[in-house]
Amino acid sequence: MSPIISASGVGKTFRQLKRQSGFGGAIRSLFSRDYSEIRAVDGVSFAIEPGEAVDYLGPNGAGKSTMIKMITGILTPSAGSLSVLGREPHANRMVNAREIGVVFGQRSQLWWDLPVRDSYDLNRHIYDIPEARFADNLAFLTAMLDMAPYLDRPVRQLSLGQRMRAEIALALLHDPKILFLDEPTIGLDVVAKDAVRRFLSEVNKQRGTTIILTTHDLVDIEEICPRLIMVDDGKLLFDGELKRLRATLGSRRRLILEFATDPGPLALATATLAADEGATKHFLLENETVSLLDVLGELGRGHGLKDVKLEEPDIEEVIRTFYQNKPKLAAAL
């Protein structure tokens, strides 16, 4: 099968205005301006197969939204080649648009003052969706996303969770082959987050819709996206499964030792102290080969050890380590 999205050496350079500070700077800028070149995306290559779910991850300003804008046909790449469903997205923006759905987390595409249904109806005409297909899809989405109670309410009266579900449904009404979501769970409460995640996972698995997500929410990643593409400074840092990311980084497993009374300062060769709460001490095991027995053996008897807990590293920990060790890892990967 050929990839649904393929990027090869894609780059994007912006010209940005340099602001001068202070009163004098403001006066000077009335007459002259300086620009600097910014490489928002720099030689990024990857391929995404149909039916995949991928999180395009990176800190703010890493160039992820620029990349998404190029894939969706909003911006033209300034270097490299990009193909979506076998087409150059920018040159074929309108054709491309029919086959993709986009949800911008903070920018609503619904008509604020009108009932949700009116926005759907307008999209039916814009996307030229056959009547029967539209009715089927709307019924399916309404049921799956539990939207029946508010389909006829003005968007401005909806809660954030309801609105986000309505936005996602709007992006799916025309059966897109690829669904892009920009921070779809940001600001939602736990229940709404869970509903959105379950639904997206379902759409990906049952309907085979390819999903590209940009999210900082690590639970989103664990529940929706098996694959991660991480970028920083416009460059690709990591592309692969979360499991592989963990393995590559080495598991910083966390060992929690609970004592009957504070045993005083403890230093171990096999683990480093991460947090000391007196009677409870957190250690991080530096690598995979160290076993629990090694640590307990080194510790020996006589400290009044009450309980031992070993935790797998959570994803937040993994990603934090990742960005901290970036230069080291860039060489290793």
């Binding site: 602001r19 009163f23 403001a26 006066i27 800028s29 009335l30 007459f31």
Partner: peptide, 11 residues
């Protein structure tokens, strides 16, 4: 006064 200086096109 000074914050207006930032918008030279407006001037």
């Amino acid at each position: 006064f000074t914050s207006r200086l930032a918008y030279r096109n407006q001037v």
